[in-house]
Design a binder for these strands. Structure first.
Lengths: 198, 198
DNA sequence: GCGTTATCGAGACCGACAGTTCCGACAAAT
DNA sequence: ATTTGTCGGAACTGTCGGTCTCGATAACGC
């Protein structure tokens, strides 16, 4: 609608203190542009700034790079992305979590975000580190599921859980980015079977 | 040593026909620059052209993008990269292949090449397609190993071999690019065990 | 109250780099 | 002998991440 900012009103100046509204406007704009399906690269800094009704300086004063903005927007958004189930059954928890993850990644908006972030991480070392931290939180979630399963005796006590987690997320990212194979619900089931040695 | 071309002599002009020496010089320069450890992004087109003693036009006349040049250089080079073992034992073949793959990826030159190509593929859709083709040849190699194993009865006949292959290569690329976990010889053994359900 | 100070939006500017276009030279094709 | 396509070299364009400057504004410290 409006060409500057998500709405037409002018933000009040906060003088010598950081403008929290501007911060939110930047993150909102970043996420909005990130989820807008495009086939080229991610949004440019100029476009984010313009969309947020903000000067580029205001972005670079608070974030170290474009990737940092995008990743913070993603992190805020994804906190409620994929819940971590705890039903008492490893196979059920695992399959639910994987199926949910695959389904989300299949949605165009989510896919665009993840793809753009991965590309940005490949370009900028600083963003790569932030991306590493983001994936770490997902690893932790999956790790918790399999650890509970092992504590219940559903997995051998000597099993390398990190390896198991990385087999799952490795397959996910590999297929998501390269697209050699599908990421559907059947894949989730089969992967669950394979990981639990059924 | 020399500032233009890998050696000092001037190439002979081939008139109206394509200069094969120039083509090789470009690919050689691309690979040489690709394997040179750098912490920033890949080599620029200008540098490749200068290193090969060639005009940029000569590059863009024969390749559609920088990534296409890099990927052709990589493909030529990697044909003899990781041999496909066939000892008659699935676990031995698998473990050998994975261990070899991991070891190669640990060498700085190889690591720089793979990392740069992955970044380039993330940036440019055309290069992404070529990268997909490259990884497909590696998938095929691993697929052949497990297919032979299944034919010998070392795997269940209903197993999804594509899934198995993608678990392996997924873990490889995930750890290679993100670095959450190691890619050492023990990892190869453990992964082999996991994939063959030992 | 009043000078100081930090942030704000806006825009000019810089440097890197992918990709294009032009040029004179050259030899094969015709 | 003329035409044609490539070659090396270089200037040029456009995009984009990131920096710098500027006037306006209001909180902060005295």
């Amino acid at each position: 609608m409006t060409t500057s900012g998500s709405d037409g009103h002018r933000r009040a100046h906060t003088g010598r203190r950081r403008n929290e509204e501007a911060r939110q406007a930047i993150l909102d704009a970043a996420l909005r542009l990130l989820t807008t399906a495009r086939h080229d690269g991610g949004p440019t800094v100029d476009v984010i700034a313009h969309e947020a009704g903000v000067g580029k300086q205001t972005i670079y004063r608070w974030w170290q790079s474009k990737g940092a903005v995008l990743l913070e927007a993603l992190t805020d958004w994804s906190d409620s992305l994929v819940p971590v189930p705890d039903t008492g059954s490893l196979r059920e928890d695992l399959c639910t979590y994987l199926a949910h993850t695959f389904r989300r990644a299949g949605e165009p908006a989510t896919a665009a975000v993840l793809r753009t972030l991965a590309a940005e991480a490949a370009r900028d070392p600083g963003t790569a580190e932030l991306f590493r931290q983001f994936t770490q939180t997902r690893r932790d979630a999956l790790h918790a599921i399999v650890r509970r399963g092992r504590e219940r005796g559903e997995l051998g006590p000597e099993l390398d859980l990190d390896l198991l987690v990385d087999q799952a997320y490795g397959l996910f990212w590999y297929r998501f980015l390269l697209g050699h194979g599908p990421l559907n619900q059947e894949t989730a089931v089969r992967l669950t079977d394979a990981l639990t040695c059924q």
